[in-house]
Amino acid sequence: MKEIDARGLACPAPVLQTKSAIEEVNPSLIKIIVDNEASKQNVCRFLESRNYETSIKEDGNDFLIVGKRKEGVSPEVSSEILIDKKTTDTKKIMVMLATDRMGFGDDELGLKLMISYIKTLKEMGHELWRLVFVNNGVKLTIEGSEVLPVLKEYEKDGLQILVCGTCLTHFNLLDKKQVGETTNMLDIVTAMQLADKVINI
């Protein structure tokens, strides 16, 4: 394994040192220590452009970057996708509510069921990641909604609640919304992509 201590150096010096090490000995494993964020990011970008897989360990103020050469993969496909820093190990469940009633048939029953559904959602625990309200669903987030206290409680506990801005505007309810963040289609689409499971009601 090749080791480089690039602490105390500013950009682009750590990248240059990594570059010459790779060009000279072409190691299958390389370790670089840097002490600032920009160098950390740049050395990782460089290693990835040279077909290395990177992992980073933080050690006090230092970052230990380990690069492992990938075999038989072209550098183009190795660039990681930048999406969301909050990605964690827990499963992420997104629930999308496009109505304020559960099921078809009897509206009164549908509303009762919906209230019960939202109250029971907490049983999903930490895996419940985002609640997204669209179309008639946004009516559950406005003043007078029976589930408002429950939703506020969820939000306080850190659950992200997104409410469709276009829908609120359509129903003229924009200033009546009492809980959640007004959102747009891009946020909704991105949330769907990031979620491990999407439940549509």
Binding site: C11, P12, E37, A38, V43, R45, F46, S49
Partner: peptide, 16 residues
């Protein structure tokens, strides 16, 4: 150049 990590520290400050 950006893809190979020649990004100035200022760019990372701006992003942060």
């Amino acid at each position: 150049y950006a893809a190979m990590g020649l990004v100035p520290a200022g760019a990372y400050n701006n992003r942060k």
